[in-house]
Design a binder for these strands. Structure first.
Lengths: 396, 396
DNA sequence: CTTAGTAAGTAAGGTATACTAACAAACATG
DNA sequence: CATGTTTGTTAGTATACCTTACTTACTAAG
């Protein structure tokens, strides 16, 4: 808001635009960039040579040129995948996931390790630091060529200030995570909420590459959501899981009654599957996965549970759609593995409660990145902040 | 997105920032502006003299200076209220409202006229053109000193392109309203949906001057809503009135069942008040206003109707709050006149269904501008677009 | 009444950016 | 092999900001 503008900032913005154009088109010449951005050829050239010097762009060898109507063939540029790398880390309650990727977001190496049990800040920092260092070593990349680390974590995260306001899963409160990890690794760190990160992942490399405004729902053990408007993640809390959807007396973990999470989450589904069994009969805990197998084999009771979950999810999504009319709604998390079991009732109920005009402009689909959405999103987050939108770095 | 940046644009941005700072502080010196924007004193000076030349700023006479600790007293600047004016027009189904205001948003003259019955595009254009011309004459301001006209109208409006996509109230479809009015008046015209305009009005001169992210609900005969995020109105449709809130078999005008508008709108309230009377007894139609009087005098049935309306409204607002956690929710439109009759059950139900952390950060209040929100908003819209955010004008 | 101190506003020179116009390079075509 | 076309570069111009040094206008103390 109170950020003044000067020529230098203009250059940064144009640099961002050039990088973004190259990312979207993969192969593009200086002349084409000049046309795309309605910038003089000269400006495009100087910015490009600067980016080449910084190791972010390369000229492809002349064999891959492509002029048709005569004239000097263009020198095609592309993101330099050999000099700089980015690390993404997703700190989950049960597992820590890591990836190393290049500027194109191509993953060179991936790793999944159980999260340390005690979940204290120090302990997690230790674990993440160690994993990052070993991962970098395993792909034999000098740590100096790592541009930064993106971190996604469950809970309320202040991305700008880089700290975790509150994370019930880890029992953290006001943890300056970015600074702490930055000091250990001596690398730039970016941090955001895992659902927002997942949404970003879907936007860059998943189901939402075409969408600018969309809603991402993650239905796992709990329910998380993220709103993306014009390509920018909405920074406020989004407690989609706790909107009121039913007057049935269902107690939610949050203390309220009739929350979506009390009907449609993985936790709720498992509870429905196991309730009424506390009599004298010994029994094993039925998992959501087992229940989905039973439902697919035709068990009516199991099917009913998924039906109900899908139905209320569809109703809740319809509310969001009526309110924001996003181009796209992405359903991710463990539940998306249940396929039509969930999606059929969901879409049916969605159609019933959404305005005609909005149904026409809104698509519902399942996550494309699946469980990797958060790690990939963490990587995308770091790429976005540290490479592709440097003009906004000064603002924080 | 694909807008390149250059030094000239930087100047425009800084000009906007200076104007905005003067608007917010009313009286401010060049030196102070330089400090506020972290811009050199020189830059602040040149921009200010440019703005003075354009008739947007003036130096106040030296009597109102105010240095304390010695030193040359600052020359205080303020928005020039004598040279340039803005017109706001709200085209409602029943009345057309107009205002002329100065750069500070102070209203010099206001007018309310019944809308022409046939409601055709030509007819409305005629009416608006005539009203604008007579209004300008009545305050004896040369039309050349009018910077532009802001228009608010019900329906789906594409603000950028300046046309009405669809307006059920007027039975308009794809009307290039901006261009049409512009050609008649030979003045810049800006147009937007009336609820978004009202939200803007509340943001500049009403209940939301402190809020950056808020939700505005207008409950009149129908229900409209607007989402403002970081001071920018959300451009997509927002059909808050048609989110599903009850499984009672209530038919909504939109064709769906159980919409909020079918329970909590002025129309719904009147219908509840009059239903079951179609027997053999002749009776008058009870209006919402009469009903609210009855309720205030203790009529339990009347009270029950408002109770229900408020309750579902509160529930719907709680959904929005959980989803977006706005700083503020403003309830406007005719219903806000019913006061505690609506607000009490609303706030009660809101507290029941909203997450604790979000209740703490969300305030609910009534509109401050009341029925004038839309006209004032229309004026603010024109001021915003044509005066205070000129750097974005190039983008459309 | 004079003098020192302080802050506001202006002038001049330097640096960064982007643009235009002319030019060199590298090809396709007839 | 000459011509036309497109790419990328060189050189010069305009605009915007910044820094440093200066003038202006006032307060406060001797």
């Amino acid at each position: 808001m109170l950020r003044k503008a000067d020529p230098e900032q203009a250059r940064q913005i144009n640099t961002d635009l050039i990088l973004d154009s190259v990312r979207k088109r993969d192969l593009v010449s200086r002349a084409e960039l000049s046309r795309i951005l309605s910038v003089s050829k000269m400006t495009a050239s100087t910015i490009v040579s600067d980016l080449i010097e910084r190791g972010l762009l390369v000229e492809t060898d002349s064999s891959t040129s492509g002029s048709s109507a005569g004239g000097r063939p263009p020198v095609l540029l592309t993101l330099d995948t050999s000099q700089n790398f980015i690390i993404g880390v997703d700190i989950g309650t049960t597992t820590v996931s890591l990836v190393v990727g290049n500027l194109k977001g191509q993953i060179l190496e991936q790793q999944r390790i159980p999260t340390k049990r005690d979940r204290t800040v120090e302990s997690i920092l230790d674990q993440v630091e160690g994993l990052v260092r070993s991962l970098v070593e395993s792909v034999s990349v000098p740590i100096s060529s790592v541009l930064g680390v993106g971190v996604s974590v469950a809970g309320l995260v202040d991305k700008k200030r880089g700290y975790v306001r509150f994370s019930p899963d880890f029992n953290w409160q006001d943890v300056e995570f970015r600074t702490l990890l930055q000091d250990r690794l001596q690398l730039p760190v970016v941090i955001d909420n895992c659902t927002r990160a997942a949404a970003l992942g879907e936007m860059w490399y998943g189901a939402a590459t075409e969408a600018k405004t969309f809603f991402y729902v993650n239905v796992g053990y709990g329910i998380g959501s993220a709103v993306v408007i014009d390509g920018r993640g909405y920074e406020h809390d989004s407690e989609f899981g706790h909107i009121h959807v039913t007057s049935s007396p269902l107690q939610c973990e949050c203390g309220k009654m009739g929350c979506l999470e009390a009907v449609s989450s993985g936790r709720a589904i498992e509870q429905f599957a196991n309730e009424g069994k506390h009599g004298d009969v010994e029994h094993d805990w039925i998992t959501a996965k087992e229940l989905s197998i039973a439902a697919e084999q035709g068990d009516p009771e199991a099917k009913g549970i998924f039906d109900k979950a899908g139905k209320y999810l569809g109703r809740a999504i319809s509310t969001v759609a009526n309110l924001l009319s996003p181009e796209l709604v992405i359903v991710g998390g463990g539940i998306s593995r249940s396929g039509e079991l969930i999606m059929d009732p969901l879409e049916r109920e969605f159609s019933v409660h959404t305005m005609e005009a909005i149904i026409e402009t809104t698509t519902i689909c399942r996550s494309k990145l699946g469980v990797d959405a958060s790690v990939v999103g963490a990587m995308a987050l770091a790429l976005d902040t540290l490479v592709f939108h440097q003009s906004q770095l000064a603002n924080r």
